[in-house]
């Protein structure tokens, strides 16, 4: 999917049908892909009447024709307003879950990336400076991260965790807690959970400050 595609001024259905024919995809798949990407009701609209967010959805729809195993997205949220960016990220997450497709995203907007990425390659001045599983990189470089802790006694655990020095914030959610902690605090929390709290079911990385991580990595190199 190109970063800033300029679509021809045709109806969405015409363009999608054309790409489907180029890829030898049956035309019945058009409706399915349109539904997946949320553009069904715009199929008979002209491309020029779409907002930037919906143009990105159209780009994703075109990319998904033929059920590819890998999607390569170049700056999928560039030039979008915050709401559209959120929508596109949510859409990418849904596509990853529903279709099991591998998504490779090239982007400069790191905070959004952390919502969908599980494997990261950092590139600085054309050189790969770090790569690997997001969870292990965050732990290794001790950047601020948010973890989800599943527990059936969230209030009790929250009152104890908030007292720890490295914990920045604790939020009670439906099935546990969201704990935001500085990099150095991760080990402390783990240790605390292992020793003091027996009922903890899991500790799962939700997001991390990739901007902070990138700064650290770029500084090292």
């Amino acid at each position: 999917m190109p970063e800033k595609p300029v679509y021809p001024h045709v109806k969405l259905r015409v363009l999608i049908r054309h790409v489907a024919r180029l890829r030898n995809v049956p035309s019945r798949d058009i409706e399915r892909i349109a539904k997946l990407t949320g553009i069904t009701r715009y199929l008979d609209f002209n491309v020029k009447s779409l907002s930037r967010g919906y143009l990105q959805r159209l780009g994703l729809a075109l990319a998904l024709l033929g059920d590819p195993e890998i999607l390569l997205l170049d700056e999928p949220t560039a030039n979008l307003d915050p709401l559209s960016r959120k929508e596109i990220i949510e859409l990418i997450k849904d596509l990853m879950q529903d279709l099991g497709v591998t998504v490779i995203i090239a982007t400069h907007i790191l905070p959004e990336l952390q919502q969908v990425a599980n494997y990261i390659v950092f590139i600085n001045k054309g050189q790969v400076i770090e790569y690997g599983d997001l969870n292990s990189i965050v732990t290794r470089y001790r950047v601020t991260a948010t973890f989800k802790i599943r527990t059936d006694k969230p209030r009790k655990l929250a009152s104890k965790l908030i007292m720890l020095e490295k914990v920045k914030a604790v939020e009670i959610i439906r099935d546990g807690l969201l704990v935001k902690a500085t990099g150095e605090g991760v080990e402390e929390i783990k240790l605390y959970l292992e020793e003091a709290i027996g009922e903890v079911a899991s500790l799962e990385l939700i997001s991390s400050e990739l901007g902070e991580l990138y700064e650290k990595l770029a500084g090292i190199n």
Partner: peptide
């Protein structure tokens, strides 16, 4: 015209 507008990218990115 399609090159200057960038429309060509859509076709070349989609299988042509």
């Amino acid at each position: 015209d399609e090159i200057s507008k960038g429309t060509i990218q859509v076709y070349l990115a989609t299988g042509l």
